[in-house]
């Protein structure tokens, strides 16, 4: 199996891309006007205080030195401290990333699975009422304005029907109660997850479904589908075994890409639902010019996308025997 070698090559590519991204980020953030110290508008900040603060952040050094320090620390595995929190960025990431992964991967996987299974069914029954109605739903879902749908769902399900919490990840009152057991806590998190998950699901589902539908339509024209039917396989066997598996391949490819594009929506969702994740932190860090935190968050996203694409490639190879590495 050459898979090992393939992964090795890709890993090297990832490392190289990493450094390029790091450099780009460094330049981008420093080129953007305003540094975190001088941006503070506080009547109590004397010019001396600003100078002291800049020195604290290492912003008093020339740019090339800052870059070298950044590179050196990065190689050493030190990612610095957030200007804003004053804490090592790794700690902040460690706090927030799991929450994002929990919400994000779940939503992507669920929407991909649902998109695939619905796209498959409606392509199979193309032209039917089911097909046209679900396709319209998919198109709507695909083009929905995220903040709008998020607020609508909060309003309807959390406020009006009072089925779910408005925001956050846990119920403080419940967690503060020493008698609360672990099951209850897990259920509580799940309960909080439902709405943001549904929003992300709604946003992503349509895209996956439409891709799956058109891919499935193409696949159904293939000769091997006729063969399968001629062999006397059941409709279900034809649909699942012969059509869907081939049709799902392009969806898997888009999965990696869509992950990159959905970060933006993730940040909005996290903000609306006060979900303590990395996306919200990133937006905050960028608007605060908190370079170290923003840098690491972007790098993480880049890493996430790169790794996701690697996983997709490996998965693709697993799904499609024609691909060999």
């Amino acid at each position: 199996m050459h898979l090992g070698k393939f992964i090795l090559i890709r890993a090297t590519q990832i490392v190289v891309s990493f450094f390029i991204i790091l450099t780009l980020l460094f330049v981008l953030f420093r080129v953007a006007p305003g540094d975190p110290a001088s941006m503070v508008i506080d009547p109590q900040m004397t010019p001396e205080d600003v100078e002291v603060t800049r020195a604290l952040f290492g912003l008093d050094k020339p740019l090339y030195q800052q870059y070298l320090i950044c590179l050196k620390n990065f190689v050493k595995g030190e990612f610095g401290s957030s200007f804003y929190y004053g804490k090592p960025v790794i700690e902040i990431i460690g706090e927030k990333l799991p929450n994002t992964i929990l919400l994000f991967t779940t939503s992507i996987i669920l929407s991909a699975l649902a998109g695939i299974s619905w796209g498959k069914v409606i392509a199979w029954r193309r032209g039917s009422l089911l097909d046209s109605s679900v396709t319209v739903i998919g198109l709507v879902s695909h083009t929905l304005f995220l903040p709008w749908i998020a607020l609508l769902m909060v309003w309807v399900f959390a406020y009006w029907m009072n089925l779910f919490p408005l925001s956050g990840m846990i119920t403080p009152e419940l967690w503060l109660n020493p008698e609360t057991g672990i099951t209850m806590k897990v259920l509580d998190v799940l309960h909080h997850m439902v709405l943001p998950l549904s929003v992300l699901f709604t946003i992503h589902f349509g895209g996956f479904m439409l891709i799956m539908r058109s891919s499935m339509m193409e696949t159904l024209k293939e000769d091997y589908i006729v063969t399968a039917r001629a062999k006397g396989l059941t409709e279900r066997q034809i649909r699942e075994r012969h059509a869907a598996k081939n049709a799902a391949l392009p969806v898997v490819t888009t999965l990696g890409l869509s992950l990159a594009f959905s970060i933006n929506g993730g940040a909005i969702t996290e903000t609306i639902f006060s979900w303590p994740g990395i996306g919200r932190e990133l937006v905050f860090a960028v608007s605060n010019n908190d370079y170290p935190l923003a840098q690491i968050a972007f790098l993480l996203i880049a890493a996430l996308v790169l790794v996701a694409n690697l996983v997709v490639d490996v998965l693709y190879a697993y799904l499609d025997p024609r691909i060999k590495y």
Binding site: T227, R241, L319
Partner: peptide, 13 residues
């Protein structure tokens, strides 16, 4: 089948 090349499903042995 006439088109033997495509009559087999590429992802199933």
């Amino acid at each position: 089948f006439q088109a033997a090349m495509n009559a087999l499903n590429p992802v199933i042995s």
